[in-house]
């Protein structure tokens, strides 16, 4: 039973799809943010696995950047969410439509 890069790719794809489903189906913005984090993690798994099997550390370097971007995204996203919540008392994405048209 040898574990090949394909195994990791499948795991990563499945996790990514879970994230996509979360973003498209849930209406609570906090859950949607968390689903986005799941997708970023799926990408990271892929990068680390291939960094190992191709014996090239570039993949790991990119994971560092992805984590940095995820941290920035979480800080700003949650900041926007809190500012919005103060005005409209909701975290439902269907009610966040004041800028839509």
């Amino acid at each position: 039973m040898e574990i090949t890069p394909a195994h990791y790719t499948v795991l990563s794809a499945a996790l990514f799809s879970i994230g996509v489903i979360g973003v498209l189906v849930r209406r609570n913005v906090i859950i949607i943010f968390m689903a986005i984090e799941l997708m970023l993690n799926a990408v990271n798994i892929n990068l680390v696995a291939h960094a190992r099997y191709l014996e090239n550390l570039a993949g790991q370097v990119f994971v560092v950047f992805v984590i940095a971007v995820a941290a920035a995204e979480a800080a700003v996203g949650l900041g926007i969410l809190l500012a919005f919540f103060r005005n409209k008392e909701t975290v439902n994405i269907d009610e966040m439509n004041i800028m839509r048209w």
Partner: peptide, 9 residues
């Protein structure tokens, strides 16, 4: 990982 991911959403 997959089980917990499903649980999250």
């Amino acid at each position: 990982i997959l089980g917990l991911g499903v649980a999250v959403i």
